[in-house]
Nucleic acid binder design. Structure first.
Lengths: 184, 184
DNA sequence: GTCTATATTTCGATAGAC
DNA sequence: GTCTATCGAAATATAGAC
């Protein structure tokens, strides 16, 4: 062993997530990541192909993190309550890690959309909407729910709610209305 | 008049909108805009402060374009039908000009969120939700509706709907459910 | 696998003549 | 107001020694 490993893909991705939240996507440079994991920038290219590849890995790790938060909520008992808790957990995640969240649904230069990882992460939503709206409408209902939640927090993070009013309460209003609307 | 004006802010912004749609935000360089309007790049700085300023102007022009599409729909007669038509026009605009649309709700490096222009553009939505849900719930209902529509087309443009099914029909499903849910 | 050194490229922005 | 010429700055990525 001439030169032992001083870092790893996992450490690089975690460092990238931290830098993303603190410095934004523009601050996520190979140099910044290298500084944080304690190697020189060129060494990163032994672990990741290039910067786009790193951004992809960071995005997928973030989707997995979100999926874990959602997965623990659904037990199958009370779909209406679980819908509300899914929605609140979704928003809380976006508030806690806004830059990573924005990466999930960001338009890609790459042609491929969000990976299969996203499909896995939203599986709890499908379980709830199946219970609430029935199997036949589970997919349409899940798309309605996730579209609303994603749109709401995206607009919130972008500072698009400028007409006053209580934004927290607007979110609870949406939860209640959607739960009514999707219940068969 | 030693040197007559060979371009204008309007021409620059329109050129920027075209380049944005064809080449993406990364392709929106001062050089590309200058080529299209027929001047040299440094001349642009007599009209716009810098690239960020140009992007801001392009975003606001796009919001105004969207607002014009929405404004012609609302007559006050049938709120449920008008809600559906607003939603469809919103989605059609996003499909026709995806990059410009994505700019509207994109996270800003700038601290300021979308300008007052957006407030004006969504005014038709408020008129419809006031008729549908009552004045007391007009704002919450408008936020629910715009969040859903924005979230839906954002996910669509990002390629996030990967579980099959008919996406057009999922949108119509959402329209119907939201119209029910928001009607008082 | 990590390092130093550097190539490359690209683009935003300015200076000053006309 | 537009032009030529150029600066300045940054960041990705590679080459080759150890």
């Amino acid at each position: 062993m001439p030169t032992p490993d001083r870092t790893s893909v996992d450490a690089i991705v975690r460092a990238g997530q931290d830098i993303l939240e603190s410095a934004g996507i523009a601050g996520l440079t190979m140099q910044a990541v290298a500084d944080r994991v304690g190697v020189r920038a060129p060494s990163l290219y032994k672990r990741v192909r290039n910067r786009d590849d790193l951004v992809r890995l960071i995005t997928e790790a973030t989707i997995r993190d979100l999926g874990e938060r959602l997965a623990v909520i659904v037990a199958g008992s009370d779909p209406r309550r679980e819908l509300a808790e899914l929605a609140r957990a979704f928003r809380a995640f976006a508030h806690a890690r806004p830059r990573g969240y924005q990466l999930i649904f960001a338009p890609r230069s790459d042609l491929a959309g969000p990976s299969i990882v996203l499909t896995h992460a939203v599986e709890p939503v499908l379980r709830v909407t199946a219970n609430l709206a029935g199997e036949d409408h589970a997919l349409d209902a899940a798309r309605t729910l996730t579209a609303w939640a994603n749109g709401f927090v995206s607009m919130e993070l972008a500072g698009a709610f400028k007409l006053g009013g209580d934004v927290d309460q607007a979110y609870e209003y949406g939860i209640a209305r959607l739960a009514d609307a999707l219940a068969r």
